[in-house]
Amino acid sequence: MAEARTAERAAQGEGHPSGDERFALLDKTLRKARYQQDQLIEVLHVAQDLFGHLSEDILIYLARQLKLPPSRVYGVATFYHLFSFTAPGRHSATVCMGTACFVKGAEEIVQQLEAAHDVRSGQTTEDGELTVSTARCVGSCGLAPVVVVDGVVTSHQTAESTLAHVGEVLAKEPTEAST
């Protein structure tokens, strides 16, 4: 329903030309914000929730809708740490670098993960399969070292066990759970 309406509006030159139904939801937020320019940060939050990250396309769309210069939208979006501009990989492995994990060898886990998958921490593999990142502390220091794989906390990890587990996850068919 929403999709059809968006496509219709797109045909009339309104909304986003792609007719992607997520833009209909974004439009709804914009209307609720009465297209006020000072609502930019709230709208960016919603956009990121809808799309997973903020692509250039989305930023330009928002700039147009809010009648703001693209530089302003880009400047605000890049200023805040919670906004991300690259699509996350299909799977993720986040190594906790909090004190407890650090002293129990988290650095070794990160190095081995980086080497095995040819990716730097904070980045995604070229095939878009795996994002490796680090976190300051996930608040589970008793389980150190902790690696969060696809949103699930795995405890008492070693470099070997992490690599094996990540390998298993990557080999599995895509599921709903992978974000």
Binding site: P88, S92, T94, S133, V138, G139, S140, V148, D150, G151
Partner: peptide, 12 residues
């Protein structure tokens, strides 16, 4: 205070 599982997206 501690979610049972931590959403990976929230850690970045």
């Amino acid at each position: 205070a501690q979610p049972a599982t931590v959403r990976a997206g929230s850690l970045r």
